Amino acid sequence: MSHPIAALANVPGVAARDAATTGFVFNHTMLRIKDPRASLDFYTRVLGFSLVRHNDFPEAEFSLYFLAIVDPADIPGDESERKAWVAGLQGVLELTHNHGTEAQDGAVYHDGNSEPRGFGHICLSVPDVRAACERFEALGVPFQKRLTDGRMKDIAFIKDPDGYWVEIIQPTPL
Results as ranks from 00 to 15, higher is better:
residue 161 P to I: 11
residue 116 P to K: 00
residue 17 R to A: 11
residue 145 K to V: 03
residue 7 A to F: 15
residue 108 V to E: 11
residue 8 L to Y: 14
residue 20 A to T: 03
residue 91 G to N: 10
residue 130 R to Y: 07
residue 135 R to N: 13
residue 154 D to V: 12
residue 147 L to D: 05
residue 141 V to F: 03
residue 52 V to F: 03
residue 144 Q to G: 11
residue 102 E to Q: 13
residue 50 S to C: 13
residue 123 C to Y: 09
residue 139 L to E: 08
residue 1 M to E: 03
residue 110 H to D: 07
residue 10 N to G: 13
residue 165 W to K: 06
residue 57 F to P: 11
residue 77 G to C: 07
residue 30 M to L: 12
residue 152 M to H: 13
residue 78 D to A: 06
residue 23 G to I: 03
residue 151 R to Y: 09
residue 141 V to K: 13
residue 17 R to L: 03
residue 167 E to N: 06
residue 111 D to E: 00
residue 52 V to I: 13
residue 155 I to H: 08
residue 41 D to Q: 15
residue 163 G to L: 11
residue 56 D to K: 11
residue 113 N to G: 08
residue 26 F to T: 01
residue 17 R to F: 00
residue 59 E to V: 09
residue 47 L to Y: 00
residue 134 E to M: 15
residue 143 F to C: 09
residue 169 I to E: 08
residue 102 E to L: 13
residue 46 V to I: 05
residue 132 A to W: 00
residue 87 A to K: 13
residue 163 G to M: 11
residue 150 G to Y: 06
residue 89 L to S: 07
residue 84 A to L: 02
residue 133 C to H: 11
residue 43 Y to P: 07
residue 30 M to N: 12
residue 141 V to I: 09
residue 78 D to H: 08
residue 34 K to M: 02
residue 27 N to E: 03
residue 41 D to I: 15
residue 56 D to A: 08
residue 114 S to M: 05
residue 166 V to D: 02
residue 122 I to V: 15
residue 133 C to P: 08
residue 16 A to Q: 01
residue 148 T to Q: 15
residue 97 H to G: 00
residue 140 G to V: 15
residue 171 P to Y: 09
residue 78 D to L: 05
residue 137 E to H: 10
residue 57 F to Y: 11
residue 91 G to P: 01
residue 62 F to N: 05
residue 138 A to P: 02
residue 53 R to I: 01
residue 4 P to T: 14
residue 157 F to K: 00
residue 7 A to R: 07
residue 73 A to P: 01
residue 75 I to Q: 10
residue 106 G to W: 14
residue 137 E to F: 00
residue 39 S to H: 10
residue 67 L to M: 10
residue 30 M to I: 08
residue 102 E to W: 11
residue 106 G to L: 14
residue 104 Q to D: 03
residue 138 A to E: 10
residue 17 R to D: 07
residue 96 T to G: 05
residue 70 V to Y: 04
residue 159 K to I: 02
residue 103 A to G: 10
residue 98 N to I: 01
residue 13 G to I: 13
residue 74 D to W: 15
residue 31 L to G: 07
residue 27 N to I: 01
residue 4 P to M: 12
residue 88 G to Y: 04
residue 2 S to R: 14
residue 11 V to Q: 10
residue 160 D to E: 04
residue 121 H to F: 04
residue 101 T to G: 05
residue 170 Q to T: 13
residue 137 E to C: 03
residue 3 H to E: 10
residue 117 R to E: 02
residue 40 L to E: 14
residue 27 N to Q: 03
residue 104 Q to F: 02
residue 6 A to M: 07
residue 121 H to G: 04
residue 67 L to I: 07
residue 32 R to S: 12
residue 66 F to N: 06
residue 86 V to R: 01
residue 115 E to R: 14
residue 154 D to C: 10
residue 83 K to D: 10
residue 118 G to A: 09
residue 72 P to N: 01
residue 125 S to E: 15
residue 84 A to K: 08
residue 118 G to D: 02
residue 61 E to K: 14
residue 160 D to F: 02
residue 36 P to C: 11
residue 174 L to M: 04
residue 90 Q to G: 08
residue 140 G to M: 12
residue 74 D to F: 14
residue 85 W to T: 06
residue 74 D to M: 04
residue 126 V to F: 08
residue 74 D to H: 15
residue 13 G to V: 14
residue 81 E to I: 09
residue 50 S to W: 08
residue 157 F to E: 00
residue 28 H to K: 05
residue 16 A to G: 00
residue 55 N to Y: 13
residue 156 A to M: 05
residue 46 V to C: 10
residue 61 E to C: 12
residue 2 S to G: 00
residue 151 R to I: 12
residue 93 L to W: 04
residue 128 D to W: 12
residue 132 A to C: 03
